[in-house]
């Protein structure tokens, strides 16, 4: 399956709504697909010590992250009958309100697409070495901790 080869996941800066739209449009030629499921992670303006989060700065351990994304992708194709799977994650600065994670699964029927999408998002959150530093409105920084 052509979708199984290692792919570029990281995007410098935010993932634009236009990029998401184009990704959807590019699937119109794959007419065996009956369902897409999309997860979009958006940077939230949490309050920390009375200051709101203005942006998150993402960094990674690139070699290990690539390995993990590849493992997750292989496992998802193994566990669910997917037609197509795309994962994109931001690095660098993403402002509050912008998109930093885009997971896009496609299958013949909705149940597989939805379940696979959730499975992938959970594994990314727990297993991929990416760190977010929350940049507060006054310019100070605070390291983000994911909710389990």
């Amino acid at each position: 399956m052509t979708e199984k080869k290692p792919k570029k996941v990281f995007i410098d800066g935010p993932i634009s709504p236009d990029f998401v739209a184009k990704s959807i449009a590019s699937h119109s030629t794959k007419k065996d697909i009956g369902a897409h499921s999309i997860f979009l992670g958006q940077v939230r303006n949490d309050m920390i010590d009375g200051k709101s989060v203005a942006a998150i700065e993402y960094t990674t351990y690139p070699e290990m992250a690539d390995l993990k994304f590849h493992e997750i992708r292989e496992a998802a194709f193994e566990a669910y009958p997917l037609t197509c799977l795309h994962i994109y994650h931001s690095l660098g600065t993403v402002l509050a309100g912008e998109i930093s994670l885009f997971v896009f699964t496609s299958a013949i029927h909705r149940a597989e697409a939805i379940k696979a999408c959730e499975y992938i998002v959970e594994r990314i959150k727990h297993e991929v070495p990416v760190w977010g530093k929350e940049i507060l409105e006054d310019g100070s920084g605070s390291w983000k901790v994911n909710t389990v």
């Binding site: 351990y61 290990m64 930093s100 990416v130 760190w131 977010g132 901790v145 994911n146």
Partner: peptide, 10 residues
């Protein structure tokens, strides 16, 4: 050897 603090991607 890499020292990995808790992940916070996504």
């Amino acid at each position: 050897v890499a020292l990995l603090p808790p992940f916070s991607g996504g």
